[in-house]
Amino acid sequence: MSSASPALHPLDPQSASAPTDTAVHLRDVRRVFSGREVLGGIDLSIPPGEFVALLGHSGTGKTTILRILSGLDRADAGTVQVPTARSVVFQEPRLVPAKRVWQNVVIGHDQNRAARETAIAALREVGLGQHVDAWPKTLSGGEAQRVALARALAVEPDLLLLDEPFASLDALTRMRMHDLVAQLWERHHPAVVLVTHDVDEAIALADRIIVLNAGRITLDVRVNLSKPRLRTDARFGTLRQRLLDELGVISQPARHE
């Protein structure tokens, strides 16, 4: 679908005019929480349709960047420009228990017949066509998260933000979700920012991997592997090792400290 330039939406008054071929434009973005600098000057541009993974330990500012991109949080300084059409899949499904599945998918639309059709189409795409009228409480964890994915797609986003959306799923469901996300991205082609702890997940899905450390970008690499990316591929292993080293995870014979 559209890789055309999305309508950019400045989230900061002091923003200069941004290049028009970007979906995300961050310039010297800073965020301080009660005296502690969480983001210390982030520069990041993402072209339309690019799949970016943000890797890092807990507390390195990944989620803060995602919340700033979503508009739920504001930067203290810097330029933040994101598309108006953007959506988020959170770590938990965050469905309204009192609304049927289809109503959750089109929660932001006027809930008429056309919206129902939109919801049904989105639910079919994630393989839940038979649960249109179900209540969220009757779904399994993986199904609920697929509803959240359908909800994020139903707004036809130019920027899709994924905040560790697979972290609470079991390993088998997570692998199926990876395939589903890859397929949906091929079809709709929004720019994607995926926040994750999981190096393998990042390599399997992303075009580009960014490693954060203490509120700064310390590595920005392209993943030049053809899809599907197999863990048995030697280059997969090399990239994996490089990322683990960058994250300070030592997988060679252990250092004793």
Binding site: S70, G71, L72, S87, V88, F90, E92, R94, V96, I107, G108, R151, V155
Partner: peptide, 15 residues
Amino acid sequence: KLIEAGIIFGLDHKK
């Protein structure tokens, strides 16, 4: 968290 999701999907206060 539910309120945040609502805001992300464009709900104003009334909705």
